[in-house]
Each structure stands twice: as structure tokens, then as C-alpha cells.
Design a protein around this nucleic acid. Sequence first.
DNA 1: TAGATATATTAGCCAGGGCTAACTTTACAA
DNA 2: TTGTAAAGTTAGCCCTGGCTAATATATCTA
Lengths: 157, 157
Amino acid sequence: MSENASDSPDLAPSDTASDDRTADAQADGFARVRAAHENEMAEDYVELIAELIEATGEARPVDMAERLGVKPPTVTKNLSRLTRDGLVKRERYRSIFLTEEGENLARACRERHRTVVSFLMALGIEEEVAQRDAEGIEHHVSGDTLRAFEVFLQKNS
Amino acid sequence: MSENASDSPDLAPSDTASDDRTADAQADGFARVRAAHENEMAEDYVELIAELIEATGEARPVDMAERLGVKPPTVTKNLSRLTRDGLVKRERYRSIFLTEEGENLARACRERHRTVVSFLMALGIEEEVAQRDAEGIEHHVSGDTLRAFEVFLQKNS
DNA sequence: TAGATATATTAGCCAGGGCTAACTTTACAA
DNA sequence: TTGTAAAGTTAGCCCTGGCTAATATATCTA
């Protein structure tokens, strides 16, 4: 990133030189990563809730905890946050449901996840590894990149 | 991940059925992502320190803060953590140096970063976007996947 | 060289997302 | 139906990594 902070003619407010623009762009990139992190929990949870409802008819905290590899109190706390944020609807000690917004997010996440896994496997990566890496990568794949993955998959079907 | 939790004959302790193994593997995946997160700050910082030293001869907190898009006190606090963890060596109000371990980490990170960016660009993604996405993706790319990226790059040079 | 300015640090706050221990509620079985 | 086991929640702790305000140190310039 530093070695050649030259090309890529972008707009930028122009201040002193290319140094400042590069710094801005880099700061922007890090900010995006931090923002993505704030959504990761939500994405993982709604995705998992959708999966469990589809597979077993309901999503129970104990099962979510097992799948996520965390303890049940962590799930409870995070479900409260998701409820606060309008992605989940539920009553104490009762079943977990996704709101409309939660459903939409879950759908998008699951599609993106599938795409990333398929893409990695198309590169020759083993399914298990592809699944694991996708879990971390998927949250940082922009729309542009996701589309590039899809194009690649179409060409290499 | 849910729709077809079947194939991929792995090892696993075998308990009841495929359900348990799948849950284990999934939990493992999430655990890996959480572990990766714990290293992200360290990786970003040492990478940036190496870049700045190479580009300007020294790494100053004020420049790091600008590049990272955070405020200087955040940099100070995180540098203390890196010092505690043996990646950085420095004295108060004085220059920042990487330890041997820090240098090694920085080198590996920079190489991985270059590979990820090149790979994304080889897929037809614009440099700017590739840089941004790489910033988030790179921390979750396993050795296997990194190798697959390199293979792809060799084939598509 | 002294004083203003820039840089760095400290202190103290906040939210996120883990945990354990203790308690409540639900569900199941005798 | 009642009592025990399983599931869920609450309370309270920890560390990370942001922030602002206040303070300390360095640097640069007049």
C-alpha cells in the first residue's frame, strides 16, 4: 500500500500532495472494516436463526450457543441487542423470530455466504476450509467484489 | 451452510450424528473468526508502522492516527498493548520500533496484503475497491486460501 | 534561549461481546 | 401433580478499542 502511493486518479479535495489523499483513502478503508465488525454479530445471528428455523422449526438459544461456540448468556445478551435494533422479535423464555428486516438481512447474508463458499471451492479449496474462511471473509466483501465472484463462477461453472 | 450440511467426510470425534459434527465445525469456524479479530489490530498496526518507517524514516503516532482514521490517544493505548505483547519497542514520547517478532509479522502481513489486492484486481476489481476490501478480507484468509490465490495469480499473469 | 505550537500521553468515559455464578422459568417424568 | 432437570435469564466481571478533556513533553521559531 505504501510502496507506490501513486496512480489511481481519483477526485479528493486536493490539499498538498498524493500523500494526503492516500492517507484519507486508507483511513476510510479502516473505518469501513470497523463498521463491518459492528454488523458481524448481527449478520451471524440472523443467518443462524434463519438456518435453525428452516432446519428444525425453531431457533433455541441453547442451539445457537452451541453453533456459535459461545455460552448461553452471551446469546441472550446479543439477542437483546438485536431486538433493540429491530432485527429480532421475541418474548422472554419464548421462541425467537426474525422481523421483516431481520429476514431480509438473513436472506442477503445466506446468499452472500453461499457465493463466497462456492467461489473459494471453485478455486480448488476444500469445502471445510472454504466454509471456515467464508465465515470471516463474507463480512468484508463489497458489492463490487461479490459481483466479481459471481462472474467468475459463471465463467467457471 | 445449512441447506446441505452433508458431504465433506471429515474426522471429528463422532458422537451422535452429522448434526453434532456440523455444529462443532461451525462453532470452530466462529471461534476462528473471533481469534482473527483479536489479531487484527496488531496486524494493522505493525503493517502500518513498517510502511511509515519505509516511506518516511519513522512512524509517528500522529501519522498512524491519520492513516488509521482514529484519534491519537487510541494509537497510544494500542501501542502500549503491542509493546506489552512484544511486537513493538519504544520509549515514551520517542520513536516507534518493531521488535524482531513485530518485523516478521509485518512482513507476512504486507505480503499477504499484496497478494489479496493483486488477486482481487486480477478478478477485474478496481484498485481502490480492491485495497478497501483487502483490508478487511486479509485477516481471514487461511494459508490454504492464500496459496490458492497465488496459484490463480500465476495462471493469470 | 524562551515561548508558542505541535505532538504525545494520561485519565476517565462508553459500548461491544466474551465469561461465571446464581436465579427463574419451563418442560418432562415419576 | 409435583419435583427435578434442562433451558433461559440476570448480575456482575473482564478486556478491547473507540472517544474527549486535560496534561506533559518536544520541537520550532522568533
